[in-house]
Each structure stands twice: as structure tokens, then as C-alpha cells.
């Protein structure tokens, strides 16, 4: 187990290193921040100072080594768009907002998708099934920003039930969370449905039926408990897509999270912040997957 853990750890570290290469390359080839950060009438001194301050006048490999050296210590430099703040601080201060939004979105999708999936599996081929699948499909068929704006018009402007945008209270969370969740709902509903269909055919369910266990107990207790494994294993991927999905939705709702920060930072060519966002995201993703791997290994020793 220790060896397995070690191997996984080394693999993750290598993956992370490759990601630093990619991120560094992408940010540095996407143009320099002068055009974004200085006014149209910037003087040559202003330009020269900024270039020098950011170390952009150094050879690229020196820049990378310097970047890597600092990055190992969690230091990505000072933000350029938000002067005076360290890039990592900017990102870490935004992380909770995105985690809250993502968490809420996942909660909503679970609360809606699991029952919907179960209902659609137990009533396969009926109107309920078609309806559930229809709802699920619509979520996948609409561009998320469009859905977000429609939600704003209907529920914030029209009905006045929620705030249009911004953050602060739980009410602010609802519309953006639904916008992100809807796509996930489609995925989860269909997963739950197919997993349930499989489990409902299993021998022990038939046995339980033969024993006269009531149908709701069979469905919600025996079957779902086993079927839930499939959507749960899917959660890691889901969490990842929640984070990236937030890029668009956070912009629509002015939600001050990581996705919004990433967009603003890229627009401003704020390399330190862009790099921090990607690395933080990658670390979270890799850690989550490491955890999943370890859990699997723990449950199923053959994997080791």
C-alpha cells in the first residue's frame, strides 16, 4: 500500500510539473500584459518598467526556472490587475466563493437528479420517464449563459424572487447554482437511470420482490444503495466540470469566484493570477483523483 501510495504521489507530482510547463508556455505566448495594463498613451518608460518588473526581459528559460522556483514555494508573484495583492492570495480568497457555488450546484443536482433518475428507471417507458429524460436533455441542449440570463429575467426581474447578480446572501446563490446544476442534472439523471435499471434486474432484487418486500423499500433502499455507486464514482469528473462551468456562469452573475477571476486575469494578461488559478485547480483535481485512487485501492486490494 505504501509503495502504491508513493508511486501515485510521484506520478501526480510529474503531472503537476507538466502542467506548470503548459501554463507557463500558454500565458507567455498569449502576448504581454502591457497592452492590457497600461493606458493607450503609455510612455516608453512605463512600458519598460512593467516589462522589467515582470522579468519579461529575461530569456524565457530563466523566466521559467524563476517561476518554478517560486511556484514550489507557493509564490506566483504579485497580481497585476489587482496591484498589491499576491496572486495566490487573490485566488485563495476567491476559492470559497467557487466552492460554495459548486457545492450548491452539486447539491441541487443530486437532490433533483437522483429521484428523477430513479423515477424514470422504475417507470421506464412511461410519460414520467420521457418527462425526466426531456428535462435532462434540455439542460444539456442549452448554452449555459443563455439559461442563466433567462433565469435572471424570469426569477429575478419578473418574479423578484432572487437577486439578479452579485454575492452575499444565500439567495444570491440560487440562480447561478441552478444554471450550473442543470447540466449536471442531465448527466446524473441519465447515469442514475441506467444504473438503477441494471440493479433492478439483479437477482437479490428479484429475491426481495419474491419475499414480498414492498416496492418503495426495494427501490429506495436496496436498489438505490447499490446503484448509487455509479453516479458517485462519476463525482470526481463532475466536480471538475462544475469548476470549469463556473467560468461562464460567474461572468453572467458577477459571482466573484475563481472562474470569474480567471477570465478577468486572462483579459488583463495577469500571468501570476492565471498561473495560480490553473495550478490551484490542477492541484485540487489531482488530489481528488489521488484520493479516489487510494479509496479504490483500499476497497479493492487487487488494484495495488
Amino acid at each position: 500500500m505504501q509503495r502504491f501510495f508513493l508511486v501515485k504521489l510521484v506520478e501526480s507530482a510529474i503531472a503537476l510539473w507538466v502542467i506548470t510547463l503548459i501554463v507557463f508556455g500558454l500565458t507567455h505566448f498569449s502576448g504581454n500584459p502591457v497592452g492590457a495594463l497600461l493606458p493607450d498613451d503609455a510612455s516608453p518608460e512605463q512600458v519598460a518598467f512593467l516589462i522589467n518588473k515582470l522579468g519579461l526581459d529575461q530569456p524565457i528559460h530563466i523566466q521559467y526556472l524563476r517561476f518554478l522556483g517560486n511556484a514550489v514555494q507557493g509564490d506566483f508573484g504579485l497580481s497585476m490587475k489587482w496591484p498589491g495583492q499576491s496572486a495566490m492570495d487573490v485566488v485563495l480568497s476567491r476559492l470559497p466563493a467557487t466552492l460554495t457555488l459548486g457545492g450548491m450546484a452539486m447539491l441541487i443536482s443530486v437532490v433533483i437528479a437522483i429521484p428523477l433518475g430513479v423515477a424514470s428507471a422504475t417507470r421506464k417507458g412511461t410519460i414520467v420517464d420521457s418527462f425526466a429524460q426531456g428535462i435532462a436533455l434540455i439542460g444539456q441542449s442549452m448554452p449555459s449563459f443563455w439559461l442563466g440570463i433567462i433565469l435572471i429575467w424570469v426569477f429575478a426581474v419578473g418574479l423578484g424572487m432572487f437577486p439578479t447578480s452579485g454575492s452575499g446572501t444565500w439567495a444570491h446563490l440560487v440562480l447561478p447554482a441552478i444554471s450550473i446544476a442543470w447540466f449536471q442534472i442531465s448527466a446524473l439523471t441519465r447515469l442514475t437511470r441506467s444504473a438503477m435499471l441494471e440493479v433492478l434486474d439483479a437477482e437479490y432484487v428479484k429475491l426481495a420482490r419474491a419475499k414480498g418486500v414492498s416496492e418503495p423499500i426495494i427501490v429506495w433502499k436496496h436498489a438505490l444503495r447499490n446503484a448509487a455507486v455509479v453516479p458517485l464514482t462519476y463525482f470526481g469528473v463532475l466536480a471538475g466540470s462544475v469548476l470549469t462551468g463556473s467560468v461562464v456562469i460567474e461572468t453572467v452573475f458577477s459571482w466573484p469566484g475563481l472562474g470569474w477571476t480567471a477570465i478577468e486575469a486572462i483579459k488583463a494578461r495577469d500571468f501570476p493570477v492565471v498561473q495560480s488559478v490553473v495550478i490551484v485547480f490542477a492541484v485540487i483535481f489531482i488530489l481528488a483523483n489521488l484520493l479516489v485512487d487510494l479509496l479504490y485501492a483500499y476497497i479493492d486490494p487487487r488494484i495495488r
Binding site: 500558454l26 498569449s30 471538475g240 486572462i266 490542477a282
Partner: peptide
């Protein structure tokens, strides 16, 4: 498979933004 992990760990939207800027 490590490449797959790396690719999944990179937010595609950011890649898109960087490409567009590039």
C-alpha cells in the same frame, strides 16, 4: 493516462482564452 489526467486537470476554457489571445 497521466497525459489524460493532465488534460482533465487543465480547465478547457482557460486554454481557449489563452489560444484566442495567442
Amino acid at each position: 493516462m497521466r497525459l489524460v489526467d493532465i488534460s482533465l486537470a487543465l480547465p478547457a476554457m482557460l486554454l481557449a482564452l489563452a489560444l484566442a489571445a495567442l
